[in-house]
Deep mutational scan, measured.
Amino acid sequence: MATKAVCVLKGDGPVQGIINFEQKESNGPVKVWGSIKGLTEGLHGFHVHEFGDNTAGCTSAGPHFNPLSRKHGGPKDEERHVGDLGNVTADKDGVADVSIEDSVISLSGDHCIIGRTLVVHEKADDLGKGGNEESTKTGNAGSRLACGVIGIAQ
């Protein structure tokens, strides 16, 4: 089992970053940390998408990683996509320092995120509470600013 993974985020604009993942036990939580720069100040949706395909930019990554066919939600919700990591918060300089621990994603097994795409979005994720159909699919997080395929790390 891989215990570490990394993702280099890039987009068409100024947004870029490096996100690290570490899972010490196969059924334990995954620590997610790193930094994203070039964002507007505020909240930005942060999700693992189904495919590791960036051939047409971030759009070819498909929908959120959702092997259990659930509705979109927040990272602490029972009803959520596996890939729903909530929001990252950018400061006035456009930098989001990421520090998350998640017990639904994994670096092995059915919820493995390796080979899938991590995406940072234009807007805040409403965590499935926006009151419309799009909220239950995407959290109304808007366009995909930057993305990268999650790969095994040393």
Results as ranks from 00 to 15, higher is better:
59 T>Q: 13
65 F>G: 00
48 V>T: 05
85 L>H: 02
110 D>Y: 05
108 S>Y: 12
134 E>V: 06
9 L>W: 13
146 A>K: 03
56 A>S: 08
7 C>V: 05
66 N>D: 13
48 V>S: 04
45 G>W: 01
33 W>A: 10
143 S>P: 06
91 D>G: 09
127 L>C: 09
76 K>R: 14
7 C>L: 10
139 G>L: 00
41 E>C: 05
118 L>V: 13
103 S>Q: 06
125 D>S: 02
69 S>E: 03
145 L>Q: 13
116 R>T: 01
103 S>F: 15
144 R>Y: 02
99 S>H: 08
108 S>I: 05
30 V>H: 04
2 A>E: 12
122 E>L: 13
3 T>R: 09
80 R>N: 05
118 L>Y: 01
40 T>D: 12
37 K>Y: 05
115 G>P: 01
109 G>K: 12
138 T>M: 08
56 A>C: 06
96 A>Q: 14
12 D>M: 11
53 D>L: 00
73 G>C: 03
100 I>A: 11
86 G>L: 01
87 N>Y: 00
9 L>I: 08
12 D>N: 10
97 D>A: 12
31 K>S: 13
113 I>G: 05
69 S>K: 15
49 H>A: 02
81 H>P: 03
72 H>L: 02
21 F>C: 04
28 G>L: 01
83 G>V: 00
36 I>S: 04
138 T>R: 07
46 F>H: 10
70 R>E: 15
26 S>H: 15
50 E>S: 10
84 D>K: 00
116 R>H: 00
141 A>P: 03
5 A>S: 13
95 V>F: 07
68 L>Q: 11
13 G>E: 06
129 K>C: 10
88 V>I: 13
41 E>T: 05
103 S>E: 15
59 T>C: 05
71 K>T: 14
82 V>L: 07
123 K>T: 08
61 A>W: 01
136 T>Y: 07
24 K>M: 09
12 D>C: 06
36 I>F: 14
70 R>N: 08
101 E>R: 15
53 D>G: 00
34 G>M: 05
31 K>L: 07
150 I>V: 07
24 K>R: 12
90 A>F: 05
133 E>K: 12
84 D>W: 01
71 K>P: 05
146 A>I: 09
33 W>P: 03
121 H>F: 02
124 A>R: 10
77 D>G: 14
134 E>P: 03
152 I>V: 05
5 A>N: 07
140 N>K: 07
10 K>Q: 10
48 V>C: 15
116 R>L: 00
43 L>S: 12
33 W>V: 10
146 A>R: 03
119 V>S: 00
145 L>P: 10
42 G>Q: 05
147 C>H: 01
21 F>G: 03
114 I>H: 06
149 V>Y: 03
75 P>F: 13
60 S>Q: 04
3 T>D: 15
44 H>S: 07
92 K>P: 14
141 A>Q: 02
146 A>E: 04
116 R>N: 00
132 N>S: 14
63 P>Y: 15
2 A>M: 09
21 F>I: 15
107 L>Y: 03
60 S>L: 04
79 E>S: 10
38 G>E: 07
3 T>V: 05
25 E>A: 07
147 C>Y: 04
68 L>D: 11
13 G>N: 15
23 Q>T: 06
43 L>H: 14
121 H>K: 01
69 S>Q: 15
106 S>H: 08
128 G>R: 06
2 A>C: 12
110 D>P: 07
60 S>R: 02
44 H>M: 13
85 L>A: 05
147 C>S: 03
18 I>D: 05
115 G>Y: 00
153 A>T: 07
33 W>Y: 08
75 P>Q: 13
105 I>W: 03
7 C>M: 05
100 I>S: 12
59 T>R: 03
52 G>W: 01
139 G>F: 02
31 K>I: 14
148 G>D: 05
147 C>R: 04
121 H>L: 01
135 S>E: 02
65 F>E: 00
130 G>C: 06
13 G>L: 07
118 L>P: 00
149 V>M: 07
7 C>E: 02
8 V>H: 06
134 E>A: 09
103 S>C: 09
115 G>W: 03
94 G>I: 10
80 R>T: 01
13 G>S: 08
26 S>V: 15
8 V>C: 14
144 R>T: 02
126 D>A: 02
27 N>T: 05
50 E>R: 06
21 F>K: 01
67 P>E: 03
66 N>F: 04
79 E>N: 15
136 T>M: 15
102 D>W: 07
28 G>C: 04
15 V>Y: 14
95 V>I: 06
149 V>G: 04
55 T>A: 06
103 S>Y: 14
109 G>W: 08
91 D>I: 06
11 G>M: 08
4 K>R: 12
24 K>T: 10
62 G>E: 01
89 T>R: 10
106 S>A: 11
63 P>M: 05
101 E>A: 07
63 P>W: 05
133 E>F: 12
72 H>N: 02
117 T>A: 07
103 S>P: 11
16 Q>D: 08
44 H>T: 03
104 V>M: 13
24 K>D: 15
106 S>E: 15
95 V>C: 11
14 P>S: 05
130 G>V: 08
104 V>I: 13
108 S>H: 08
113 I>L: 10
46 F>E: 00
98 V>L: 10
29 P>S: 10
89 T>I: 10
88 V>T: 05
56 A>H: 09
146 A>D: 04
81 H>R: 02
60 S>N: 06
48 V>G: 02
145 L>I: 13
61 A>I: 02
21 F>T: 02
29 P>I: 14
75 P>C: 09
54 N>P: 10
32 V>P: 01
17 G>K: 00
26 S>Y: 15
3 T>Y: 14
20 N>G: 09
61 A>N: 03
139 G>K: 03
37 K>D: 06
131 G>I: 04
118 L>W: 02
13 G>A: 11
89 T>P: 13
35 S>H: 14
95 V>S: 12
131 G>F: 04
45 G>D: 02
102 D>Y: 09
121 H>D: 01
142 G>M: 06
20 N>P: 00
140 N>Q: 08
126 D>E: 03
53 D>R: 03
32 V>K: 00
41 E>A: 12
23 Q>G: 12
19 I>Q: 03
7 C>Q: 02
92 K>H: 09
112 C>L: 13
99 S>V: 07
89 T>D: 14
99 S>A: 14
122 E>F: 13
116 R>F: 00
98 V>R: 03
38 G>F: 06
146 A>G: 04
137 K>P: 03
140 N>F: 13
86 G>S: 05
96 A>L: 05
7 C>W: 00
37 K>M: 10
27 N>V: 13
91 D>Q: 04
95 V>T: 05
129 K>Q: 07
47 H>L: 02
71 K>S: 09
106 S>K: 08
